[in-house]
Amino acid sequence: MLRIDAHQHFWQLSRGDYEWLGPELEVLYRDYLPAQLQPLLAAAGVSKTVLVQAAESVEETEFMLRLADDSDFIAGVVGWVDMESGNAVDTLDRLARHSAFKGIRPMIQDIADTRWMLKPELEPVFTALIERGLTFDALVTPRHLEPLLILLRRYPDLKAVIDHGAKPEIATGRTTEWAGDIARIASETSACCKLSGLMTEAGDNPGFESLMPYMEHLLACFGAHRLMWGSDWPVLELAGNYPQWLAFAERFVAPLTEVQQQAIWAGNAERFYHLQV
C-alpha cells in the first residue's frame, strides 16, 4: 500500500530565519535534513513526502525547493509568502514555476490577532491561490476555528487543509469547544484535515489510548476521504518518534476498508497536492 507523509519539515540552523526555534527546544535545536529522514521513511514504507515551511521567509521556501531538486522522495513543497506584501502574488507566481511548489502556509498560530486571516488585504493572495490551483495549509489552534470557518465560507473554492487537527488541547482535556468547532468546519466546508501533530499536543510520550478519541473524532468529522496522514517530523520528536506515531496510525486505520486506508495513507494527499508519485 502506497504511503505518503503529508507533513514533514527540514531545517538548517545556520540559515538563521527560524525565529521560533531556540536552544530551549533541545532535541529540535539541530539540523534536520534529508539524510536523517531517509532511513525512517524506508523503515516505514513511506515513498514520498510533502515538505512544509518552518520559517516566515521566502528564502526558506527556496531552500526547500532546492532540497526537493536533490531528494527523490520530496513530492511537494508547501512554502511561505508575505501575504500582506504588495508583491505577494508576483512572489507566488515566481515560486509556482517550480513543479514541486504546491501552496503556502502562513504561521497563523503565532499571530496575535486571532482574526488576522480575515483581513481584506489578504484577498488578492487567496484569490490567486484559487485561480492557480494552489493549496492553503491552515496552521491553526482551537481559538482560530471560528474565523477559519468564516474564511472558508468566504472562499468556498479554496483548497484548504487543517494542519494537526487544529491542535486540540489533549494534555489539558479542554477540547469540548474544539470538537464542536472542528465538526462544524467539516460539515459546512470542503476543507481537508491532517492526521498529524496529535502526539505533541498530548504531552511527553503519550499512549495510543489517550490519542484515540481525537483521531476518532477527526475521522467521524472528515471521513476517510478528507483525512491525510502526516508525521510532523521532526517536531514529533518532542513527544515520541516516527516509528511510534506510525504504529499508532496503523492501529487506528486497521478496522477501515482497504480503500479507506489507502485514502488516508496516500490518496488524499496525492489528490489534494497534485503529487506525481
Results as ranks from 00 to 15, higher is better:
residue 142 P to H: 03
residue 169 E to D: 15
residue 150 I to T: 15
residue 118 L to S: 04
residue 187 S to G: 12
residue 77 V to D: 00
residue 158 L to N: 10
residue 196 S to T: 10
residue 109 Q to P: 09
residue 82 D to Q: 11
residue 194 K to I: 06
residue 228 M to A: 12
residue 221 C to D: 11
residue 96 A to G: 06
residue 71 S to T: 13
residue 161 V to I: 14
residue 136 F to P: 00
residue 200 T to R: 08
residue 90 D to H: 13
residue 143 R to Y: 08
residue 38 Q to V: 05
residue 257 T to I: 08
residue 197 G to F: 02
residue 22 G to I: 08
residue 92 L to H: 01
residue 276 Q to A: 14
residue 2 L to A: 14
residue 258 E to D: 15
residue 71 S to D: 08
residue 215 M to R: 07
residue 5 D to Q: 06
residue 150 I to Y: 10
residue 33 L to S: 14
residue 98 H to L: 06
residue 163 D to V: 10
residue 167 K to F: 09
residue 230 G to R: 03
residue 232 D to L: 06
residue 57 S to A: 03
residue 186 A to C: 12
residue 196 S to L: 05
residue 200 T to K: 10
residue 241 N to M: 05
residue 101 F to N: 01
residue 191 A to C: 12
residue 150 I to D: 15
residue 96 A to Y: 01
residue 123 E to Q: 13
residue 259 V to H: 11
residue 155 Y to N: 08
residue 5 D to Y: 02
residue 15 R to G: 02
residue 132 R to H: 04
residue 35 A to Y: 09
residue 56 E to I: 04
residue 92 L to A: 01
residue 138 A to Q: 06
residue 105 R to L: 06
residue 150 I to S: 14
residue 160 A to F: 07
residue 126 F to D: 08
residue 214 Y to R: 06
residue 87 N to K: 08
residue 74 I to P: 00
residue 179 A to L: 12
residue 174 R to W: 10
residue 151 L to G: 02
residue 112 A to D: 15
residue 213 P to H: 09
residue 28 L to E: 13
residue 253 V to D: 05
residue 104 I to K: 02
residue 145 L to M: 12
residue 277 V to H: 08
residue 218 L to G: 00
residue 173 G to K: 07
residue 22 G to W: 10
residue 144 H to G: 00
residue 272 F to T: 03
residue 127 T to H: 15
residue 114 T to K: 10
residue 7 H to L: 05
residue 21 L to D: 12
residue 103 G to R: 03
residue 195 L to V: 05
residue 117 M to K: 00
residue 6 A to Q: 09
residue 248 F to W: 09
residue 213 P to R: 09
residue 51 L to F: 05
residue 195 L to Q: 02
residue 182 I to R: 01
residue 149 L to P: 02
residue 79 G to P: 06
residue 86 G to T: 06
residue 206 P to Y: 12
residue 272 F to N: 03
residue 68 A to M: 01
residue 148 L to K: 00
residue 40 L to N: 00
residue 62 E to S: 11
residue 70 D to H: 14
residue 77 V to W: 00
residue 223 G to R: 07
residue 71 S to A: 11
residue 258 E to V: 14
